[in-house]
Amino acid sequence: MKLTLRVWRQKNAGAEGAMSTYEVDDISPDMSFLEMLDVLNEQLILSGEDPVAFDHDCREGICGACSLVINGDAHGPERTTTCQLHMRSFKDGDTIDIEPWRASAFPVVKDLVVDRSSFDRIIQAGGYITAPTGSAPEAHATPVPKPDADFAFEHAECIGCGACVAACPNGAAMLFTSAKINHLNVLPQGAPERETRVLDMVAQMDEEGFGGCTLAGECATACPKGIPLMSITSMNKEWLRATRRASKR
């Protein structure tokens, strides 16, 4: 396949960026999108140019490192992560626009790499359970009803890639935050910190400068892990419950 790539190039956080056009040839439809970018970078290095910086790690669709807005879609046209997107989703001769996640809480570091440490700070605000660590406890020591376990698993699938923020017209992190809150709040292990978790994580989310939710639904459409939009509804319910309870104390 022969492709024209229009890639966002930005030297560093402070520099002005712009789209640059590159041609790549001999792309196999079986290559992943990132392998295609590897080909582009080899080409750039050989010609003495600066390679395009992009985030990637596991390349198995489970780590949440890869990003990229491809032709206006977070993670591209298929409902998966960029590393699991293959070139067969494109046609020979296509022009592909590649941009970084756009949100003021995700500043561009270089080219297509953005700083997602705002997500880490949301997790630090309450996305954990306070328990002594050590060997894994006996699995049946704490019974969990099946529907609750399913609900927790559905939300635990979130890999924190940030596609929800990138897709949201308001740059909101509601889907990420709600997935993390719901995952723990429904489980008995998360119960002792149920109220502080939701209040603190939502407060941190606001503190980071993410936008608010207008229920446009773009986040859930972009999410490679299929976190449902209703996740936000559940978080709102938890937040209202915690706010009412906090006012009684």
């Binding site: 626009d97 308001n170 608010g212 446009a216 639904g217 459409t221």
Partner: peptide, 28 residues
């Protein structure tokens, strides 16, 4: 206040952008 915040949270538009949400949502 929320709209101001939303606009600040997403200062730069995508070069390749398409309207997606329903008409009712976009015109709120």
């Amino acid at each position: 206040q929320l709209s101001r915040r939303d606009i600040r949270a997403r200062p730069s538009k995508y070069v390749h952008s398409k309207p997606r949400a329903s008409y009712a949502t976009r015109t709120m």
